[in-house]
């Protein structure tokens, strides 16, 4: 499906952003990319999307180099939800979603149906005639998700899709993509929320300093030792009834919210109530 082999990205100034990344994305799975700021999550997505060419190594999509596809052919295979929520000029929500059909040319017979379908899937049919630039943050992201869905590709690359959203909208967006994976969509999402990752990820990539330091099921990757090392943040990891990890940074359990050095060496084990699933 989507495969990276020996991918390195080095800036013109010689700074390495990705170093020798090897990975394979499972078809029909929701893969979450975690890592501190500057770990290379966004660059990894940009390599996967064909936006930038790796300095070394290759990213291949369905057996061919991502960069070998033309922009339109690529757009029919993968869609990208970037962090940008700005649209020049006063397009309506439906017009923004319609832009998702760009790659299908001017005579896009099934376009109109796909657009309305996508609006319905995200529950934004009532927004269709509202100007995009007057929407709230949550409404805007729903419209952008609908645009990405309308693009009709089999892989969706999401760059921090839950940024700046209230907890309910964050949940709705991730749940929506989780359900779309059941219908066959492959999703790669860069996230910051460890518990969202634990809840929704089928596959979890943990990155630090341009390398993938852990790759596997959430229950394997999200360990106290690994998280403390990667984020330089002591945490305790609880388990829900079904064994899913629940990450609690140590400052939540310290008395005044202070991160003390003591705690970072020997974090308390199972120091919280178990949450039943």
């Amino acid at each position: 499906m989507l495969e990276l082999r020996g991918v390195s990205v080095v800036t013109t100034g010689g700074r390495a952003i990705l170093s020798d990344v090897d990975l394979e994305i499972e078809r029909g799975a929701l893969t979450v990319v975690l890592g501190p700021n500057g770990a290379g999550k966004t660059t990894l997505l940009r390599v996967m999307s064909g936006e930038i060419a790796p300095t070394r190594g290759t990213a291949s999509l369905e057996g061919s180099n991502v960069r070998s596809y033309g922009p339109a052919a690529l757009a029919r295979k993968r869609c990208v939800l970037s962090q940008s929520r700005s649209v020049g000029f006063a397009f309506t929500a439906r017009e923004v979603v319609a832009l998702g059909r760009y790659a299908y040319g001017a005579s896009d017979v099934e376009g109109s149906a796909k657009i309305d379908e996508a609006l319905a899937v995200v529950g934004a049919l009532d927004l269709r005639d509202r100007p995009y630039h007057l929407l709230s943050g949550g409404e805007a992201v729903k419209v952008d998700v609908a645009r990405v869905i309308a693009q009709g590709s089999s892989i969706a690359l999401l760059d921090e899709p839950t940024n700046h959203l209230d907890p309910r909208v964050q949940y709705d967006i991730l749940m929506l993509f989780h359900e779309l994976t059941k219908a066959g969509l492959t999703v790669v999402a860069a996230l910051h929320d460890l518990n969202h990752a634990a809840l929704f990820a089928d596959q979890l990539l943990l990155m630090k300093d341009g390398s993938v330091v852990a790759n596997g099921a959430p229950s394997e990757v999200l360990s106290q030792e690994m998280l403390s090392r990667v984020y330089d943040l002591p945490c305790s990891v609880a388990r829900t009834g079904s064994g899913r990890p629940l990450v609690i940074p140590a400052y939540f359990s310290s008395e005044k919210g202070v991160l003390d050095a003591q705690c970072s060496h020997s974090p308390p084990e199972h120091d919280v109530l178990l949450v039943s699933s």
Binding site: P71, R76, S84
Partner: peptide, 21 residues
């Protein structure tokens, strides 16, 4: 015209939509 519409999302998103920016 269609290309300019796509560019309304910004150059990166326009590329993601399939535009040869």
């Amino acid at each position: 015209a269609r290309n300019l519409n796509a560019l309304a999302l910004g150059e990166r998103d326009a590329f993601h939509l399939g535009l040869d920016v």
